[in-house]
């Protein structure tokens, strides 16, 4: 905690966290708005069913929520690693 990172290290940290943020938000958008809404009718017709539920419908009502949790876990883990690098 007592060490002061250089400006370059700080810039590197910031650009890496922004990149992570963009990647995670793209996944977030693709799953919810993409699979859950925009491509839902197409996925319902062309993708294998999850049990007896059409694919897009299942993503909208179950799959998206599960993905959101995974996204947040990934965010916590990767940011934690970045933090450690900065502190070390």
């Amino acid at each position: 905690m007592s060490k002061h990172p250089t400006d370059e290290e700080k810039r590197d940290y910031w650009s890496k966290s922004i990149k992570l943020l963009i990647v995670l938000l793209l996944i977030w958008f693709f799953v919810s708005f993409g699979c859950g809404i925009l491509f839902r009718p197409w996925l319902d017709d062309n993708f294998p069913k999850i049990g007896s539920a059409p694919f897009g419908f299942w993503i909208a009502q179950q799959g998206s929520i599960i993905s959101f949790i995974l996204i947040l876990i990934a965010y916590a883990k990767i940011m934690g690693r970045l933090d450690k690098k900065l502190e070390a």
Binding site: L24, W28, S32, A60, S64, I65, F68
Partner: peptide
């Protein structure tokens, strides 16, 4: 469902 959980990611 999506609106009130997906917002947490943002």
């Amino acid at each position: 469902l999506m609106g009130w959980t997906g917002g947490f990611v943002l």
